[in-house]
Write a protein that binds this DNA or RNA. Sequence first.
DNA 1: ACGCTTTTTTAACAATTGTTAAATACTTCC
DNA 2: GGAAGTATTTAACAATTGTTAAAAAAGCGT
Lengths: 190, 190
Amino acid sequence: MPITFLTFLQSHYPIPKSDLQIIANHLSTRTVEAKTILLREGATAQEMFFICEGILKIVTNNEKGNAVTQFFLKENQFCTILDSFENGVAAQESIVAAIDCELVVLQKQKLLRLYQQLPYLKELIQNITRRALLAKIAVRNAYMGENAASRYETFLARQPEIALRVPLGDVASYLGIAQQSLSRIRRNVR
Amino acid sequence: MPITFLTFLQSHYPIPKSDLQIIANHLSTRTVEAKTILLREGATAQEMFFICEGILKIVTNNEKGNAVTQFFLKENQFCTILDSFENGVAAQESIVAAIDCELVVLQKQKLLRLYQQLPYLKELIQNITRRALLAKIAVRNAYMGENAASRYETFLARQPEIALRVPLGDVASYLGIAQQSLSRIRRNVR
DNA sequence: ACGCTTTTTTAACAATTGTTAAATACTTCC
DNA sequence: GGAAGTATTTAACAATTGTTAAAAAAGCGT
């Protein structure tokens, strides 16, 4: 499983062969099934995940107490609560497996040691993470200007790998639509 | 006007007095009135703004061609299109003055030179920028789970300095509501 | 294959929001 | 102070979405 991770890194940056083993030594792996809570809101993130297989979701409770799915993360993406992981504060969001997942786990302490040994990794991972974040925001913002039906169409067109693999309830939560309404919208699309 | 900026920086980090003049030498200022376009979608961001007075908005056109206000930035906040500014690519969003503004302008070339002279500034500014971004995302995400009326209430409660100062149409665009609907919602609140 | 659980679909009705069009209020500039 | 432009409000009606409740379908373990 770590091989997926190393291959991914190599596709972004030419990593010396001799470094690969060092990196591998700082990784662990974890297989979880759908609905597993990987980080609970209020706790402090001590790990960063890399998704080899599956989909994770980031969930919050808003002012009204409704659970809102903020983002989905899929294969070859990193996932953590950045603010909590970097600044050691309590996370305001939870990380939950939307479907069964195979993950590479980067523990904070190990990752920091790894960054010291291979400083280029720090910039590399942080860059990847930040870019992914910016991309997600852009998408999210675009939804605001659309009605429920368009939001679903857009989501389906842009991220079918996610839209078609997670439970409908999760999609509804992500798009800010009641599950029943989304079901109806879907019927009228065909 | 640059004094506002320097004071702001000092409140985040103890800046040696001798450095203040160096920083000041790399700044310029600009006063613009409402609706001025500071960066047009498609262009490349060459400047970062610091808002001394006023409110800027970041605007996009989504798939359906509707203009959507993504974020507002107010006094003591930085504003640029990060992806474009840092990676030299075309911006997908425009920066527009929502009301009259007084700005400190950080030109990319000058800023890079400044970073070389005072390396701590780079981390400082990037940290501030990134945190602000994370905070904005959290708010934005929370809206997804609420209906139009709650979104307005939440926005009003959390950011009255913005909600009460920009035109209603901008608020409506930001919250993803038709202006007429927002007007009606507002009437029913009182 | 059966029962149990979870997910998805339906339906009727209520509530919210969008749309169109027009009136009113507010600014700004001469 | 009045004209011209901009911003906000109203209203009636249409369309969309939420809500409640129940049925159907799909997945899971034994």
